[in-house]
Design a protein around this nucleic acid. Sequence first.
DNA 1: CATGAATGAGGGTTCATTCAT
DNA 2: GATGAATGAACCCTCATTCAT
Lengths: 214, 214, 214, 214
Amino acid sequence: MSGDGESGTGRAVRRQARGERRIAQILDAAAGVLAELGYEAATTNKIAAAAGISPGSLYQFFPNKEAIAEALADRFTAQMGGAHRTAFTAGDLAAEPLADLIDRIVDPLLAFNIANPGFKALFARADMPSGLTAASRPIQDALLGRVEGILAARAPGLTADDRTRGARVLIQVFKALVPLVTEADPGDERDTMVAELKRVLSAYMTALEAQGRT
Amino acid sequence: MSGDGESGTGRAVRRQARGERRIAQILDAAAGVLAELGYEAATTNKIAAAAGISPGSLYQFFPNKEAIAEALADRFTAQMGGAHRTAFTAGDLAAEPLADLIDRIVDPLLAFNIANPGFKALFARADMPSGLTAASRPIQDALLGRVEGILAARAPGLTADDRTRGARVLIQVFKALVPLVTEADPGDERDTMVAELKRVLSAYMTALEAQGRT
Amino acid sequence: MSGDGESGTGRAVRRQARGERRIAQILDAAAGVLAELGYEAATTNKIAAAAGISPGSLYQFFPNKEAIAEALADRFTAQMGGAHRTAFTAGDLAAEPLADLIDRIVDPLLAFNIANPGFKALFARADMPSGLTAASRPIQDALLGRVEGILAARAPGLTADDRTRGARVLIQVFKALVPLVTEADPGDERDTMVAELKRVLSAYMTALEAQGRT
Amino acid sequence: MSGDGESGTGRAVRRQARGERRIAQILDAAAGVLAELGYEAATTNKIAAAAGISPGSLYQFFPNKEAIAEALADRFTAQMGGAHRTAFTAGDLAAEPLADLIDRIVDPLLAFNIANPGFKALFARADMPSGLTAASRPIQDALLGRVEGILAARAPGLTADDRTRGARVLIQVFKALVPLVTEADPGDERDTMVAELKRVLSAYMTALEAQGRT
DNA sequence: CATGAATGAGGGTTCATTCAT
DNA sequence: GATGAATGAACCCTCATTCAT
């Protein structure tokens, strides 16, 4: 309006940018606190403190604690998207040797889990009677779809139900074994556990492929 | 004493019996509330209400909330003992067909999990940065030992470390797939999921046996 | 009535006797717990346990916790009566040397306090805004009267008000110094403290006598 | 920072000021409730209500109930510091007439006790088997030291032990007689009681001086 | 009368959320 | 927007008292 030497849009953009930086800041803090303390013990005050802001400021960006969890889940989903793309995009899904395929998928996923300790703490709740189901849905669904795609390519004889079930089993098994990997000391111990994780997936995939051979 | 128409022992017995009935009542209630709400949301008042007693009465039998969880874990352990015995005792571990072995072990364990919905909610905490590790240790260790025993019999070439790792993987996989089974509608859907669970275990076991062939 | 081979009175007497033994038992326990834990921390359950009876039985003899305190106070009063009689009865109050008088009074009173650790814990409350005033009244009054009697004999010129005030001061001083005596290690340390206590009383009494000389 | 129409320091100062006002408010309330009900019956909710705040707000300033008591004790200590300075600083301790000395010390101390009814209720706990010893230590020690100093000046022949014992006796006597003063109706009755209190101290001090004459 | 489990109000404390500044 | 004190319902637990046996 008056003597504003600055376009309102420009300011809005900058404000938005600042807001997103704040949000990222909060989610980083939330991930850290979650990883360390688990969901229930991760109080909003602790998250705010870890983010270097006041409790009140938290509620400028999130309506409640659950919303923080959901946003964090969403961000994990998005970040995971990168890992997924790397993991699921390339190559000829059908022809590639199984071991290569599993390497290509499992390695970035594991790397992501190791790099983001809050991830597990957050999605552990998905199995629980408390909730967060809503927040974790998208990421779960995306992953499920991709794995189903792989099964469709490599075991074309499976029914849609078989594919879904197989994909859920593969995902569940992967998730269950991730803690064993992350808890293992980096080095030989962890590598061996990774190999074992891949062995389980490989063995089960082989069985599915045999069943779904056209 | 003297003209007491009733032996003191008899009364003591009945009192003890009543006490144990109350404890069972409380643990039943706790299991139910736990299954429905998870550990943190399972308040002592809710457990008391579910048990049909007052909050104060709870503390006549348990010194605090954690003790209830531990007692429940112990009871699960004990009950599980039955399932374990059925599961692990019989047969010639080494010679028996793998499918039979898996049936014999998995079926009672699944039955137990289905019959005790609180079980999962309670032991989910063992993976979390909160606790109950103490309470769940025994049951975890017992299970681990038995599975290691199976591997020792069927894959004698494995090192002790390999056996432990393999056993942990098998257990983790089993635990991860139990929810998929319990969530499945009883009937064909569940049966199919059970078959799939067994297929994972079977495939991985086969791989271990191949590796551990003398 | 019917074939009762025993007179109702006889039985009543025996019952009463048993009741009083129970009451004594409870008061003993209460004194002990009180001495150890103080009034607030002395729960009725702990008193019952210390008395070797059930919580419910307590309430057969006392309507509530306060009543126990009052009964204990009464009993202390009565027992104190013995000490008082020894202390205050003998001799020619007016002519006796002051030091002798003080010895005669203070020594049994101190002995009583040392022998009854619950006594202090109980009457400490008399100064507090909580209560027990009712229970401690009698003993306080009895003591006050006796000390007033002494002052009347030895400082006849004092007004009644002066006597009362002087007596209250003497009592208060005595009570305040008792803890210093009981806390002192038995032996020289305690003896010295007793001497000091007597010195305070003696010095003040001398001043009163000087004022009250006819 | 930059375009802040108000210096951050200024705001911080004001915030701090508000915080300290709140703390003072809470301690005032605590002193009142304590004076009226005693320590155990002084619930945090009552203190909060008396301070006109919510229970939760109390815990923004104090981690628990005991901390409130300690802070109150500290504040009493500090305030008492003023009374002490007035009381103990001036004059030639050794040469001054005893009556003047006692006036100079006792009067401000009594004034303080009369003005702060919670004081007694709080420090009464020091004698009890519960605690607060930690909080009341400093004030007790400071007082003890000053009285010992007086004895050193006026009764130089006393051993260090004698001085300590004498000082403890004087303090204990003073504390014991304070309630008699505060309970007395302001006016003649209270004045007379004050005179009596001073008479006790004076008489005992005279005895000490006689013993400790070089 | 004895027993001891049962009661439930209330205690100290926490924490997601709000609001005045 | 930011701040952080304020809120108050709810949590876990205690204890004086009651009541069925």
